[in-house]
Amino acid sequence: MKEIIRIVVSLTVSCIVAAFVMGTVFAITDKAKKHNEHLNVHETVLGLLGYNKANPAPSDLRLFTMYRYIIEDEKTKNLGYMVPVAHEDKEGYELLVINLKGEFVERLRLDIAPEKVAEEPDRKSALRAVIKPPRTFTYADSTIIAKLGGKRLAYLLPGAFPGFKTFIEVMLALDPSFKIMGLEIMEHEEDPGLGGEIEQAYFKNQFRDKSFEKIKGLKVVKEPLPDEYFRYLEADKTKEDMISRKEIAEIKSKYQDKDIYALTGATISSRSVTVGVKTIIKKFTYRVNILDSVIAGQRIPVTF
């Protein structure tokens, strides 16, 4: 009996100590983790817009995030856009409900501070206050809108689609005319050396500068990547000016309307990225046009 008590006591003590250690570490690291995640996204966004250490982002560049939800009850389904708005210089968020035909339904004020909006639980509790059961809401996706000096500079679309093995997560940058400004692969589990090459500049930069018209019919071709094009695509990496400005412009115009060259030994990965990018852009362009017309029609003071 005495032994049992000793065992129980010592196990309890060690569990409490362990829990204390882990709890403390969690409390310390949790904030840093979230901060770093946001920083990572921020850096990717800046990278896609063409800013880096040598060419820092101008101070009047601002990023706004818009969240899309699906709002439904038993009968109807609507889309709800959480859009950043400014009322008399005070920034906040509003929920803009649009029906499936693209007509305005209602707008609801949300009680959420702009700096808290990035956290999913905070968004949920704000939405719960205005959307009462039986209406439910489910998160669909988000869009980042970059604004420079009062004008829209780019749309940044995070997205995911199935690759060769598991999901590939990407971030796409489109300019206001829906031309691709850049593609960044955020996460993937393709085979290293084969499908894993999708994260290399010579593949992902092929998407750069493709126009919206071209994207609609974008295909993958199984041809070897021409040498000069390879050098052009990898130009960001090489520090010394291996190719002149004139040459860059020449190669750019030559290959701008070409299809995507498949990676050797990873045609399926290349194809799934191309199709995935195509789908994301198509859906987005359809929606953003509707959203813009609703915003204009309702005179909603959006910040973007």
Binding site: M22, V25, T29, D30, A32, K33, N36, N40
Partner: peptide, 13 residues
């Protein structure tokens, strides 16, 4: 758990 949390927070890549 400690090293996992620390790495996830400070060296995400």
């Amino acid at each position: 758990t400690v090293i996992d949390l620390v790495l996830a927070a400070y060296m995400p890549a």
